[in-house]
Amino acid sequence: MTKTHVQQMLFDAAAMGRTDMVAPLLAAGADIDAYDERGFTPLILAAYDGHLDTVNALLDHKANACKPDVSQGNTAQMGVAFKGEDQIAARLLQAGCDVNARNRQGQTALMMASMFDRKAQVDMLIAAGARRDLADTSGRTASSVARDQGNDAMADHVRNSGQP
């Protein structure tokens, strides 16, 4: 079996939630932080596809939770905001990445959670230190992103969450 084949098997295992395959494939030489042909790491694939056990296994094997995808610069944390995977979002926050990390458009996980009406993740991110005042390259904050989606309730929640 070639190293390329072993690497592809790790990408497939991550995307399918085959936690049982992570350790053997890493032992066989797969790179835990490599990019697939679309520019995603195994951790990004597992997180995006909602496989908490696989995310845990990859993180336990020291996957870089902060490594963004190649094309947009989105992190796993940003991806789970899109998908609504609250348990995975909480686990990724424990990994210690910059909660205010930005993608190529200057967007943060808080902006994405706000855009997709992920209240639990908005609260988690704010509690972890996400800054509400950061603006993307279009000048939009997390609150204005929600408002632009027609979600005034989320816009207000972002502005007032965690406030006395």
Rank of each mutant, 00 (worst) to 15 (best):
Q121P: 02
Q163I: 11
S144H: 08
R104E: 07
S161V: 13
N56H: 10
A34V: 04
L59H: 00
F116R: 06
R104F: 12
G96R: 04
D117L: 00
V80Q: 06
N56A: 11
L43E: 06
V145P: 00
A13G: 07
Q107W: 01
Q87E: 11
G106S: 08
V55F: 05
G29C: 09
N74W: 04
K62Q: 09
G162P: 08
D152T: 15
D148E: 14
G139F: 02
M115Q: 15
R118D: 04
D53Q: 14
C97S: 12
A28M: 12
F82W: 07
M112V: 08
N74Y: 08
N160Y: 11
L125F: 11
L59D: 04
A128D: 10
M111P: 06
A101G: 10
T4Y: 09
R118A: 04
R147Q: 11
S143C: 02
S143V: 10
L10V: 10
R91L: 09
A14G: 02
L10D: 01
M78Y: 06
D98L: 05
L43S: 06
A89M: 10
T141C: 12
D156T: 12
M112I: 09
I32N: 01
S71W: 05
E37A: 05
A28D: 08
L59P: 02
A127T: 13
R91A: 12
R140G: 00
M16R: 12
N160M: 13
G150T: 10
L58G: 03
T54W: 00
F82M: 11
A109M: 05
I88M: 09
T137D: 08
F116D: 07
S71F: 02
L92N: 03
Y48V: 15
A89V: 00
M78S: 05
D136I: 07
A155G: 13
L58A: 07
N160Q: 10
H5D: 15
F11A: 00
L52I: 15
D136P: 09
N100A: 03
H51N: 14
D49K: 15
D49W: 10
H51Q: 08
A135E: 15
R131P: 00
M21G: 01
E37W: 03
M1L: 06
V70K: 03
G96I: 09
N64D: 15
I126G: 04
N151R: 13
R147V: 13
S138K: 15
A15F: 05
K67N: 07
Q94C: 02
T108Q: 06
R38K: 06
D33S: 03
R132L: 06
R131C: 03
D117P: 00
T75L: 09
L92A: 07
A15G: 14
H157N: 10
R102V: 15
G73K: 11
G129I: 04
P164V: 01
D123T: 12
R132W: 04
A15D: 13
L59Y: 02
A27T: 14
G73M: 04
L52H: 12
A63I: 09
A113L: 03
H157S: 02
N74V: 02
A23H: 05
Q8E: 15
A127Y: 06
V122H: 05
D20S: 11
Q105K: 12
Q87S: 14
G106D: 05
I88H: 07
D156Q: 14
F11W: 10
A142T: 12
A34T: 08
D86F: 01
D117Q: 11
N151L: 04
G50Y: 08
A15S: 10
T54M: 04
V22F: 02
L10T: 04
Q8P: 10
